[in-house]
Computed example of a mutant assay.
Amino acid sequence: MTKTKSGALKVKDLTKATWNDFESVMGSNGGASGCWCMHWRLSIAEFMEQKGDGNKKSMKRLSQRKQPPGVVIYEDDDPVAWCSLGPRGDFSRLERSPLLKEVDDTPVCSIACIYVEKKHRKSGLMPAILDAVCDYAAAHGYTTVEGYPIEPAKGKKAGPDSVMTGVASAFVKAGFDEVSRPRKDRPIMRRTVS
């Protein structure tokens, strides 16, 4: 359990039991533009074809599998965030991305998306969320966690569509190191966990 200023963070698999909390975090629009966190799991054509309800149904099916597609993060009992994570190979669009190519052959737990519930944004929770997610990954046998945050230009703000993978400064605060920078605003970051 990761401590925060106002409580403790808990991480729970996305399952039938936590589905309503996932919906609460994602809001009625399913995160950004009806994504329901399917962006990295589908081709752009598939994603656009099922945008909204179709993506929601796909994620609901994934939540019923043995290996969950991600986790819901709680501050005390309040669902505050969602994190899509798992083996890099689970994210077909990430695997095909010319920008976010595999750095090396190290097996990683990829953090493909971090979505913070609207009222908890700008609260400084992100490093603690990343810590909690890394603890979860370590408990599930991973030794390396990899993220693909953005690093907005100085003085620029990034919107929810572009920060779905997180912000580099939060990863640094959570103990991640940059291992590659394929583009000026896109570092690939890793943290060793045990």
Rank of each mutant, 00 (worst) to 15 (best):
A45Q: 15
D105L: 09
P98Q: 00
C109L: 07
L99D: 01
D78W: 05
Q67M: 13
L100C: 00
D76M: 05
R65Y: 07
E95T: 15
V72W: 02
P87F: 09
S63F: 01
R61S: 11
V72A: 00
S63W: 00
E46F: 07
S58R: 13
P107G: 11
A45N: 13
P79C: 11
Q64Y: 07
Q67H: 12
T106P: 06
L85I: 12
G70N: 03
R41G: 05
K51W: 03
G52H: 01
K101C: 04
K57C: 00
F91L: 04
E95P: 11
V80L: 06
Q64F: 04
G89D: 15
P87G: 12
S84A: 12
D76W: 03
I73L: 14
E46K: 12
R65W: 09
W40L: 05
I44Q: 09
S58M: 11
P107Y: 11
S63Q: 04
D77L: 10
R41M: 11
E46D: 12
V103Q: 02
S63I: 03
E102N: 10
D76T: 03
F91D: 02
P68T: 11
R41W: 07
Y74C: 06
M59N: 08
G54S: 00
R88L: 09
G89F: 05
V80N: 00
V72H: 02
